[in-house]
């Protein structure tokens, strides 16, 4: 049986969580093995030293038994896969963001800074877990194997788009991968978890720039959800929008505490990844994205009949009449409609 999940629709919420905090220790949740490779923090200071920080360090994770966390139980291949998916997502973001700026697609939303939360949480779930993502969660779908061609097809709304060109860019969905199609309304979902304590849900605050922390937290949350029928709200410390944060703050996260660079430090320290691998992979991933991008741009848009299908399971008599009226009209005034861009 499938397990239902609502993932990460809390990126905008950076308030207190239900966790009781302590000022004694400043070890971050789930960072036990990674911490030594990271920028060090002054342990005499009681609060995290980064811009925008309102949280306090916590010394323990209340709902997890001590024996559950025992380092990072992930193989080299798994970690390399994390890294490649995170960087591929980032490359796709850069190219599609740029294409939106050039007017080639109508809209885009990057996942910058959230690569760790996407990949970490996706990896911790079973592949047949049914996922309800929000509109900034492409990495989860990428991790599950959604091909670049289909990402691009959706953003271009072309004839290969599984959503038949109906939704704005980044509204992906894939039944085969158990990822329910994204919808724009986000605020309708937030109260379901933003008020975790209010609804009697347990909550956890996770370092979203630490892919392993997200992985562990999600894995344990999933375990609890399945074993104890207990929902858990999932918070991220990452978000992206200069309208909501100062440029300095965004730059800090980008340069000093980025989930991709942190994971790369980890891999480098283990001798799993070097400059050559990095260069080769960057080049290769960019090529993959560009090929998919160009292919999607050339492709025709979906057939006009898809305006009318899927409103109901079957076309109603009214919709059939409206479809026929539109066909006649467009035929009569064809010089005024871009019909050549659409599949016949």
């Amino acid at each position: 049986m499938q397990t239902l999940w609502g993932l990460g629709f809390l990126n905008a919420i950076r308030q207190h969580t239900a966790l009781k905090t302590s000022r004694v220790l400043q070890q971050r949740a789930f960072r036990i093995n990674v911490a030594q490779f990271q920028q060090s923090f002054d342990s005499s200071i009681e609060k995290p030293q980064f811009p925008g920080a309102s949280a306090e360090f916590i010394d323990h994770l209340e709902f997890i038994q001590p024996n559950v966390i025992s380092g990072i139980p992930l193989s080299k291949d798994t970690v390399l896969n994390f890294y490649q998916k995170m960087t591929l997502l980032n490359t796709m973001d850069r190219i599609l963001y740029e294409s939106q700026r050039q007017g080639r697609i109508s809209f885009y939303m990057t996942n910058y800074g959230e690569e760790g939360t996407h990949i970490g949480s996706a990896a911790a779930l079973n592949s047949n877990d049914l996922l309800f993502g929000q509109y900034r969660e492409a990495g989860v779908l990428l991790y599950r194997g959604f091909p670049l061609d289909l990402f691009m097809a959706q953003c271009y709304g072309n004839a290969d788009d599984l959503g038949k060109g109906r939704q704005m860019p980044v509204h992906y969905g894939c039944k085969d991968l158990n990822f329910v199609t994204i919808s724009s309304p986000l605020a309708t979902q937030i109260p379901q978890a933003a008020r975790g304590p209010g609804y009697g849900m347990m909550s956890i605050r996770v370092d979203g720039n630490d892919v392993f922390a997200v992985y562990n937290a999600t894995k344990e949350a999933r375990r609890r959800a399945v074993a104890e029928n207990q929902p858990i709200g999932h918070h991220s410390t990452s978000d992206d929008s200069s309208a909501y944060r100062s440029v300095d703050e965004v730059n800090y996260w980008d340069k000093q505490d980025h989930p991709i660079s942190r994971l790369r430090h980890y891999m480098t320290a283990r001798g799993w990844w070097g400059e050559d691998e990095e260069r080769t992979w960057r080049k290769q991933s960019r090529k993959l994205v560009m090929e998919a991008f160009e292919k999607a741009e050339r492709r025709l848009k979906p057939n006009l009949e898809f305006i009318f299908t899927d409103v109901y399971d079957d076309l109603t008599p009214d919709l059939i009449k409206q479809r026929e009226a539109m066909r006649r009209h467009v035929q009569q005034y064809k010089e005024h409609y871009p019909i050549d861009l659409y599949e016949k």
């Binding site: 709304g157 072309n158 109906r166 939704q167 848009k301 305006i307 919709l319």
Partner: peptide, 14 residues
């Protein structure tokens, strides 16, 4: 408008 949701890529026809 037709009796459908408002479709993205088909707006000129809708």
């Amino acid at each position: 408008g037709y009796d459908t949701p408002f479709p993205h890529i088909f707006e000129p026809f809708y």
